[in-house]
């Protein structure tokens, strides 16, 4: 090579040279190893290995138990959000105790000068009334059950086509309120 003098290079190689001490080597090598060493994993207690499986199983058991309990208590509620309230609480078979009475046309004797519209309005109000009526062989308890099932405010499950009883005088959804005076013809 142009920038080398072989004789000088040889003389340089033959000369005694200092060497790094073994302590210095150890310091550097230790530092280099520590730099690439992975951070030590924190030791966890032995039971910690079972914590996740145990908690998963516990959550599963709790969930299934809760679901079964809810199904036993209110199966209809789980099946449909608009389903009627369960009969199971009253323990009365609806088919035997109650009958859905088909809506019958409400006949109110027409008074002189009364418009036919009132008749329609009254029949509509009646349609929001009692959906069930005791069947032919119904007992007093069954009648009471039917009455409870059909109490106002539960008309949602009664269906839209089950008006039964005729409207009472003065009944416009507020029992006890006196009827409005009818306009004179």
């Amino acid at each position: 090579m142009e920038h080398r003098d072989p004789n000088l290079s040889q003389a340089y190689r033959d000369a005694p040279h200092p060497e790094p001490s073994s302590a210095l080597d150890a310091r550097i090598l230790n530092a280099a190893r520590q730099a690439v060493a992975k951070p030590a994993v924190r030791r966890r207690p032995t039971w910690f290995a079972w914590a996740i499986p145990f908690s998963s199983v516990a959550v599963l058991v709790l969930g299934v138990t809760l679901l079964l309990d809810m199904q036993q208590r209110a199966p209809e509620v789980l099946e449909s959000p608009t389903a009627p309230p369960p009969d199971i609480r009253l323990n009365i078979p609806r088919s035997s105790a109650c009958q859905v009475v088909k809506p019958a046309p409400v006949e109110i004797p027409a008074e002189p000068g009364e418009s036919p519209r009132r008749t329609t309005s009254q029949s509509n109000r009646a349609a929001r009334g009692w959906p069930y009526a005791p069947g032919p062989g119904g007992t007093a308890a069954a009648k009471l059950a039917c009455k409870l099932l059909g109490e106002p405010g539960r008309s949602g499950y009664a269906g839209s086509s089950s008006p039964t009883l005729p409207a009472q005088p003065g009944d416009r959804g507020h029992p006890g309120r006196p009827p409005r005076p009818r306009p004179m013809p």
């Binding site: 004789n7 000088l8 040889q10 003389a11 340089y12 033959d14 000369a15 005694p16």
Partner: peptide, 10 residues
């Protein structure tokens, strides 16, 4: 000479 040089080069 090399031996001498090695002694002196430093």
């Amino acid at each position: 000479e090399r031996r001498e040089a090695a002694r002196h080069i430093l």
